[in-house]
């Protein structure tokens, strides 16, 4: 058990290394002078030269790479070219918004998606058809569009919930939720649909399996067969998908934060993209990859808990 966890943590390290290297290579691939790319074509040669010096662009590529890696190892993600602030502290400041959004969305999609999928598989008939159609359409609706549509209907039309604003969760969970209901709905809808489809297929598979026939043959009540045995088996593929959904939801946050004017990592990404703030973007990619790896680790741990087979491997 402990060996498996250590193993997974060790595997995450090369992953982060590859991503960091990828970002470095990407920066090298930029046509022309990246200092010019950052400052814009109109920048004075003095400013360009100064930035080149600051970024160490005059050093050999290998030196640049080693320096970059070395500072990453010490937790130094560089400084924002826009504000001069430390990238790590910017990211730490923004992360709670996005993380609270993405994590809540993951939990909501897991719960709602599983319930829908199980209901569709267990009851079948028209309920199944309705759920299949709704989830089929659900995966095709862009979250930023759904967010805007929710603003039109729920905020503007019904006046029930605000369309902009944010209160940190740590400050007041109630108010946080009040502002987050619409963003969470917008971002989670597609994940709900995706998880429901997976849960439906897995539940159908479980209900048809030989072990369910054995349990029926042994006279166990339907309630136990479905909600104890089949559900436990269904949860394994569903949890896999939930891990993947987290990656999608982080991406979705970029767009939905824009719709609801939330001050999270997504807004920061858009801002940094517009101003070519490469250190922030690089830091962002590594930072979010690390988050995904942590979530993957949690998913792996939940396998250990859910599946005796995985425990033995």
């Amino acid at each position: 058990m402990r060996r498996i966890i250590i193993n997974r943590v060790l595997l995450a390290i090369p992953m982060l290394w590859v991503v960091a290297t990828f970002m470095f290579v990407l920066l090298q691939l930029v046509p022309g002078d990246s200092a010019v790319a950052i400052l814009g074509e109109g920048a004075t040669p003095e400013r360009v030269a100064a930035l080149r010096g600051q970024m160490g662009l005059n050093d050999p590529v290998l030196t640049q790479y080693l320096n970059w890696m070395g500072s990453l190892l010490t937790g130094d993600f560089g400084k924002s070219t826009m504000s001069g602030e430390s990238v790590l502290s910017i990211l730490n400041k923004r992360a709670p918004v996005t993380l609270s959004l993405a994590i809540t969305a993951v939990l909501v999609s897991f719960a709602v998606g599983t319930v829908l999928g199980v209901v569709a598989a267990v009851f079948g008939g028209w309920l199944d058809r309705v759920i299949r159609i709704v989830t089929g359409v659900g995966v095709a609706v862009p979250n930023f569009w759904l967010g805007s549509a929710l603003v039109v209907v729920v905020s503007v039309g019904l006046g029930w919930l605000p369309s902009v604003g944010y209160v940190p969760f740590a400050k007041s969970p109630g108010e946080w939720l009040y502002f987050m209901i619409l963003p969470i709905t917008a971002i989670a809808a597609a994940s709900v649909a995706a998880i429901a489809r997976q849960a439906r297929a897995a539940m159908q598979g479980a209900l048809q399996s030989e072990y369910v026939q054995t349990l029926r043959g042994a006279g166990l009540p339907r309630r136990s067969i479905i909600f104890k045995h089949a559900l436990r088996n269904t949860s394994i593929p569903v949890v896999t998908i939930v891990g993947w959904q987290f990656v999608s939801l982080l991406g979705g946050a970029v767009l939905v934060e824009r719709v609801f004017a939330l001050p999270g990592l997504g807004a920061l990404t858009v801002q940094a993209t517009a101003s070519s703030d490469f250190p922030v973007l690089q830091g962002m990619v590594i930072y979010t990859t690390a988050m995904v790896l942590i979530v993957n680790l949690l998913v792996d741990l939940s396998y250990l808990w859910l599946s005796p087979k995985v425990r033995d491997q």
Binding site: V139, F144, A193, A194, Q198, Q245, G251, G252
Partner: peptide, 9 residues
């Protein structure tokens, strides 16, 4: 974007 279809892939 990304979202559901990504998962479907």
């Amino acid at each position: 974007m990304s979202q559901a279809t990504e998962e479907e892939m």
